[in-house]
């Protein structure tokens, strides 16, 4: 888990993003939080969310704890709902990405503006929201799939029934 999260945070920091997406970063850490919330016990998911948040905050100018708070909230909500959904289906991951990415972005925006750390016009926020929806829908399923494949290969997760 730690390896995956560290690897994910570096990937998120290094991969460039387009201005048409409001320069939102690829939601690699969020994808991993969603993955752990869907497939692991709640306790593990929450610790993964805490660690993912610490990594995101350490690699950016966000004050320590802001991202962890958002990720933990996301993990808590998803793990409460996971009995109701197909946890390993790509459509579930896509819908989770669609909902969680803009929700996280909005929550962080509110926290940062409340702390007077961010100057961002409404147009910029709208563009970022659009970018988070697109990247969430596309990349969260990919991240979940990659994490699942790795864990199956390492014997930490059972292979899917075909």
């Amino acid at each position: 888990m730690v390896f995956l999260l560290v690897f994910g945070s570096v990937l998120q920091a290094v991969v460039p993003t387009g201005p048409a997406m409001g320069q939102v970063r690829l939601p690699v850490l969020l994808g991993l939080v969603i993955y752990y919330s869907l497939l692991k016990p709640r306790r593990t998911a929450l610790y993964a969310a805490l660690l993912a948040g610490i990594l995101q905050d350490a690699l950016s100018m966000i004050p320590l704890g802001f991202s962890s708070f958002c990720f933990i909230l996301t993990a808590w909500i998803i793990s409460s709902w996971r009995e109701e959904v197909f946890t390993r289906h790509w459509l579930t991951h896509m819908l989770m990405g669609l909902a969680a990415a803009p929700a996280n972005l909005l929550a962080l925006y509110l926290l940062l503006t409340q702390a007077r750390l961010l100057i961002l016009p409404w147009a910029g926020l709208m563009l970022k929201l659009w970018g988070s929806v697109v990247t969430g829908v596309i990349f969260v399923p990919l991240v979940c799939r990659a994490a699942e494949t790795l864990e199956v290969k390492l014997g930490m997760l059972e292979a899917r029934e075909s």
Partner: peptide
């Protein structure tokens, strides 16, 4: 690297 959050130009 670049800002991992995408909020700032760093």
């Amino acid at each position: 690297g670049r800002d991992v959050s995408g909020w700032w130009q760093t």
